Simulated assay, not measured.
Amino acid sequence: MELSNLTGFLVHRTDVKMTNFFTKILKQYEVTPEQWGILLVLDTERATSQKELAEAIDRDQTTVVRMIYSLEKKEIVRRIQNEADKRSHNLFLSDKGMSLKTKLMPIVKAAHDHVTKYLSDDEIQQLHEILSKLYATVKDE
């Protein structure tokens, strides 16, 4: 068996290159691809718990707490204690965070269009379905 025939290797190689590409695009805005994922999930109006956020971006809660702390220091995210459960916090985008999200949306869309430029809409849909199947196979391993 050759390395280039291993699905895991091909997925990992692609992930590394795409992460590097998006990191380069977002660097001037002082946002990482992971932080961009948080910006996409959070809103200025609807509260999101740290647990919901961790599930949405598929990270453990300890990692999410560190990421939230970093975004809070940049005044992008607001963390407000949940009145019903004092152990929990509600997360919101700040006005600065919403402005950044709005500014980055067309930039990230253009970057997405660039990395998928050789794929048809049907191929993109198929790729999403295939990656979802691969993920479902290993997500609880």
Rank of each mutant, 00 (worst) to 15 (best):
L53H: 02
I107M: 05
Q126I: 10
N5Y: 13
D140M: 07
K17E: 15
V138M: 07
L40N: 11
L71K: 02
I124Y: 03
D140E: 10
V64F: 03
I25Y: 05
R46W: 09
H89D: 07
G37W: 01
L127P: 01
A110W: 06
R13H: 11
Y118H: 14
K73S: 05
A110H: 09
T102Y: 07
E141L: 14
D140K: 09
I68R: 02
Q35C: 03
Q61F: 04
I38S: 02
N20G: 08
K139L: 08
E45Y: 08
E123R: 10
S132I: 06
L127M: 13
T48E: 09
K117A: 08
R66E: 08
I57D: 02
S132V: 07
Q81V: 10
F22G: 01
E45I: 12
V41G: 01
N20I: 03
F22C: 01
I80F: 05
T23N: 08
I124A: 04
N82D: 14
T32I: 03
S94L: 05
Q28D: 13
D85K: 10
E55N: 15
A54P: 00
M18F: 11
R79A: 14
G97F: 00
R59L: 07
F21Q: 01
F21G: 01
A84G: 06
I107E: 06
V115L: 00
I124K: 12
T137F: 09
S4N: 15
L93Y: 04
